[in-house]
Amino acid sequence: MLVYLLCLLLFSIGIYCILRKRNIIKIIVGVIISEYAVNMFFVLVAYRMEGRSPVFSPESQIENMVDALPQAVVLTAIVIGLATTALLIALAMRIYDKYGTFDITKIRELRG
């Protein structure tokens, strides 16, 4: 139970970071943290108590394996997260070029 709560805590920290921080880099870090929390939660969902890795061989008995599908799926989710993060950082760099600051309260030309 504790691990799930810690996972939720991690997710909340990430969302807090996105909502409350003023620095663009910290917002990106918040996105990364909450992404990891979701990925970790997906792997936790698939875990079985005392489970072993889901590798099949003729000698071993099929019992108590962890669920293999979420692990494959999470890999994909991590790659997507990588693409998003790379793009966010590229945008942050270009914003710094144009505005000379990472502070989002100073980057406010669009409103209304």
Binding site: I15, I18, I24, I27, V31, S34, E35, V38, F41, F42, V45, P70, A77, T84, L87, L88, L91, A92, R94, I95, K98, Y99, I107, R108, E109, L110
Partner: peptide
């Protein structure tokens, strides 16, 4: 340009959060 980058960053962050909720729901 300045405004495009600002808009894109805002869009990217909010949309990523949206995607996270979708992924969580899928989990």
């Amino acid at each position: 340009e300045r405004q495009e980058l600002e808009a894109a960053f805002k869009y990217a962050v909010m949309s990523t959060v949206g995607s996270l909720f979708i992924l969580l729901a899928i989990v």
